[in-house]
């Protein structure tokens, strides 16, 4: 693979990871925390429901998971495509 193609492939792979991460980001906050809360109202969590938990705690925990996953995955992707910092 030439440098140009490899750079393209690296960028495409990065965009894919970003898109998947942002779908999850939106799902737990705007989705479970706000819009889909009525659907989750049957699942009780300590005096309230799952939607309330996502709005006050769950979304923050998922955000954390997402950022660390992205850092780990991208550092591996950098090495696979030979664009990491020596």
């Amino acid at each position: 693979m030439s440098g140009k193609d490899s750079a393209m492939a690296y960028w495409k792979a990065n965009i894919r990871i970003i898109l998947i991460s942002l779908v999850i980001w939106a799902l737990v906050s705007f989705g479970f925390g706000i819009l889909l809360r009525p659907l989750l109202s049957g699942i009780a969590v300590g005096g309230s429901d799952l939607g309330f938990w996502f709005a006050q705690q769950g979304s923050i925990l998922v955000f954390l998971g997402l950022i660390f996953f992205y850092a780990w995955r991208m550092n591996r992707l950098d090495r696979e495509h030979g664009v990491d910092e020596e």
């Binding site: 970003i18 942002l22 906050s29 709005a55 923050i60 955000f63 997402l66 950022i67 991208m74």
Partner: peptide, 24 residues
Amino acid sequence: GYDNSTFLMGWTGGYVLLALLLAP
């Protein structure tokens, strides 16, 4: 109460955007 969970999600969710779209 619940309605102001917007501050919790809004002020933390921005870090996902920062980490994925800008900082590196």
